[in-house]
Design a protein around this nucleic acid. Structure first.
Lengths: 252, 252
DNA sequence: CCCCCTTCGTGAACGCGTGCACAAGCGGGC
DNA sequence: GCCCGCTTGTGCACGCGTTCACGAAGGGGG
């Protein structure tokens, strides 16, 4: 096959009149902005500047402006951003204005914790089903929801219009569960199992691996101790996400 | 436009005898390799090629080789990597050979799930303490561990040599907890609270926000539906992490 | 009515992470 | 003993994400 794709001309330019596509990293930050803006609105703020918002979200002010620019012109030039308007704008773009039925596969520690977690419902993610392969877990009630057998997965997805699935099973079952989710119509998967899942194009997957996060921290500790400031001028920016002290903690 | 720094000779080499620093993204993948290699060893494999390992971990083969090259020469040229040797090498670098006492702050749904999670202990992360500010939760036993009052945090960290802290509290308490953790000697924090925490230099922080992950998926769904492939040639690589089918699923 | 201060939006540069292609080198077969 | 195939390790280029710096524009004070 052609060595090195000849770089199709125009690939850089997305589409002249097409709607902007927002990079994942920016989408994640927009979600953060949405949360802190909700708090700010409750606290009585009508407008915020990019600098204020940056302080609340723990990022750079330039970053805030660039992220918000993906939404089109949303701010007033000498004033800042209207909190209410901005919340609406982000909500529409991220789909937070509607309800997203979610199915959780696996009623273990993590699955149950997620089913109980209020933070999900607060952002429009309704746990429409919780299934488990273990018959002894079926029927138990978790967070006002009965655990259903794994066999009910497909019917449940179709009936309740589920578009997002959460895999909270052991690694060995992850791929099979993913296949069934996709076959049943799920288009987005959040995978907590420590195993990679392959999905066909058009399906989104995001992976969260708790042990992996701790391993990265562990590595930082090993580095910090084995070479206790032996060479480096500064300990790298391994930490300290450039967050200024900010006297008042996010309005708690 | 070659103003681009003329590449000072020797600048590429960090330090002749100095240990190489590994980017966080690579460290995370090394953790994944460690896990799949453990499985492979149990399954009887003595050596693996970068291509095999890539298939198991769900990444590119080049990526595997580049990541492993951070560890120094670890492979045999015509054969591949010795599984046992590689496991040892990664384990040392990531600090998986020792035990890391961990304290979990917040005995809510998530905190309890983490305390029960066996995947942590399997990688050397021992939950040395579980504390909560709510008096009604103190004394309850979770995963063979009694919930202790928040006041016991400092003593517990000092006594059990805790270096890693996990914040599983509401957002409003996150910064205060982080400050106390750092003051008590914790050098690495895993933050599950949906709020940014500021720490002094030298302390590592990683953040996991469950609702945020779902919001990113939600955004993908919104985009996929509002513009049902009306323009893009391909749906972007929004998903499909370049994982080839790979007939034999990771041992399942 | 004019001027200055504030603040957004964005073009450009920098650095990082990712993927490709190739040279170097080891092991097995004949 | 020699050759051939397989696999590692790495230089290189591309694209993305982040940050800086500046032009444009609106509001308030004199």
């Amino acid at each position: 096959m052609a060595r090195r794709a000849p770089r199709p001309a125009g690939a850089t330019l997305p589409a002249p009149g097409g709607p902007r596509r927002i990079p994942d990293a920016a989408v994640a930050r927009l979600g953060t902005y949405h949360r802190v803006l909700t708090d700010a609105l409750a606290a009585g703020s009508c407008t915020v500047s990019s600098e204020q918002l940056a302080g609340l979200a723990g990022v750079n002010a330039s970053q805030v402006r660039k992220d918000l620019s993906y939404l089109g012109p949303t701010g007033t030039l000498g004033v800042g951003y209207d909190v209410e308007h901005l919340l609406g704008r982000i909500g529409v773009e991220l789909g937070l204005t509607r309800h997203w039925p979610v199915v959780i596969v696996g009623a273990g520690n993590l699955g149950r914790a997620l089913a109980n977690y209020r933070g999900l419902a607060a952002r429009g993610f309704v746990v429409a089903g919780l299934v488990d392969a273990d018959p002894t877990k079926v029927g138990r009630t978790v967070g006002g929801l009965a655990v259903e057998p794994l066999e009910a997965l497909e019917g449940l997805i179709a009936e309740r219009r589920v578009r997002i699935g959460v895999i909270a099973t052991p690694a060995s079952a992850a791929q099979e569960v993913a296949d069934r989710l996709v076959a049943a119509g799920v288009r987005a998967i959040l995978n907590f199992a420590p195993a990679p899942v392959g999905v066909p194009p058009g399906v989104s997957v995001r992976k969260v691996d708790l042990a992996l996060e701790l391993q990265v921290l562990s590595y930082h500790q090993v580095r910090a101790t084995t070479r206790t400031r032996g060479d480096g001028t500064h300990p790298r920016r391994a930490a300290a996400p450039a967050l200024r002290p900010d006297p008042r903690g996010a309005g708690r």
